[in-house]
Design a protein around this nucleic acid. Sequence first.
DNA 1: TCTCTCATTAACCGTTTGCATAATGAGTTT
DNA 2: AAACTCATTATGCAAACGGTTAATGAGAGA
Lengths: 227, 227
Amino acid sequence: MKITKIKKARAAKIKKVKDILKPNTRALQKEATRATILNSALQIFSEHGYEGSSTRDIAAHAGVHHALIKYYFENKDSLWRAAVSFLFERQASEMNFAPPGASTKTREGRREYARTILRQYVLYCARHPEHARLMVQESVRDNDRLQWAADSFIVQTSRSAEKFVRLMQREGVMPQGSAPAMVYMMVGAAQMFYTLAPEVRRVWHIDPFDKNVIESHIDALQAVFIR
Amino acid sequence: MKITKIKKARAAKIKKVKDILKPNTRALQKEATRATILNSALQIFSEHGYEGSSTRDIAAHAGVHHALIKYYFENKDSLWRAAVSFLFERQASEMNFAPPGASTKTREGRREYARTILRQYVLYCARHPEHARLMVQESVRDNDRLQWAADSFIVQTSRSAEKFVRLMQREGVMPQGSAPAMVYMMVGAAQMFYTLAPEVRRVWHIDPFDKNVIESHIDALQAVFIR
DNA sequence: TCTCTCATTAACCGTTTGCATAATGAGTTT
DNA sequence: AAACTCATTATGCAAACGGTTAATGAGAGA
């Protein structure tokens, strides 16, 4: 047996081991890179707004060359849309608006349902403050991006929220009053604390993401909105 | 009498008339230009954020050459600080937190006081939505500008709000719960509707600045927060 | 009327921006 | 092991950016 053949056989074995240890090295890495860029985009966009964010900063934050943004997301606008899509899809997967069935038959059951929804939403806002931060920066002025986000996601989630509010009002669990106003009041009252976390820390010297602080915020929110 | 002398006398008279009709033409124009630039800065900063706004856009919006921004405000950072100072000083002059004296002795009087404060604040938010828009964009991340704004204005207004909340809670007019949380809930519930006006219009097909809409928002806010 | 002041503009500089294209080289296939 | 694929990087470009300096010209003062 020639040495070259042995070497060949050895190389083949090594290759097989590699294939087992790192299956689809390239494909996996590709997915990881894409995710890293998207993650950095969320961070940068939510803190600096669309126009205040540069694709180069996003790439640098992700530790990759800025040309990769074009490779993975075509351009800045598409990257932003991908980031927003990710936010709303994650929210849809993490939030559960389904009423717990039987328990809504009694008044106390319905109050418990309302409490759970508010609690869930506050926890979501605290877990992912970049969602509200990014959206708030886009919603202060009208343009193509807001129109797209509204048509694609906001209308849908707003309808859910409206249904929830009207149901709770009909049951006497939430105060009467204009449904749109009530939705924005609830959302604002739940978000603000985490969206403006840097201000909260500086002005009040408390960390809004502290477990106990979150819980007392939830308590206060429920005390205010639920009867 | 020479013709030139007559002309001279005539010119002098015309000049005096001009001086009466347009006193300090130049000084007035200067003040007007400064105010125009500051106004445009408020508009642009509040819609695009600090980094998303260009001094050239602000100058163009004001209809002046961009070099005038250096002439009047030194640089972009100082212009932003001047704009924020203007916002908070105007708020201080338009908002009146003084309790209406005798009427706070009865429980109904105290509720009326709380209602008035909330109403005043909502009307302010609706009258000047750029205030909350500009501040929200700065407060989502920590930096020198936020620190300056907090030290100069936000701490002070927050202390006022805290005092108000604690007083109302002690009197049983507002629900119990963490004071900082309660302040941000109230502020968020009052602001959001006007800060996100473009979104509100697109998603709900209503104009949050309509008189009747504002009034029903005030009603809802009072119904939620005041007992 | 003639100068002088200064509010305003024109022109320029170095840097950053979004985006495009070419070059590279590690991983895959044969 | 050679050929190929394609994820990544290097380079380049026109426009826009914040900021500076010199020029201008209308109103104020003598």
